[in-house]
Amino acid sequence: MGWRFLSKLIFWGILQQDAFDKVDCASPIERQEYMLNIVIDICDKEYNFSGFAEVGPYFKKVINVLKQMNYALFKSDDFFKEEKELEKLLAESQVAVEA
């Protein structure tokens, strides 16, 4: 079941791009590398959810932060602010591998 959320995440974090937004319309390769690393890291992490119903809303939040990052100027204050937010989110739901 995780594949579906991860592929959604890849879609919104990387593939989706707003041609009418001044910042998002063009993404330099350094920025693409940065985002690819973040997305791959998210995909590689282990998650521990107490139930299926938690998964959707959680990834919705993650996706929203990725979208905001794509709209922010690369490595601007806003960009790093969103990245911090992302780290927080990831820390929340990530636990050490058990069982």
Partner: peptide, 17 residues
């Protein structure tokens, strides 16, 4: 290699969908 992994994940996601 990372790009290829990304593509694989997309593919699997699509299949699950």
């Amino acid at each position: 290699p990372k790009v290829n992994r990304l593509k694989t994940m997309l593919q699997r996601g699509l299949e699950v969908s």
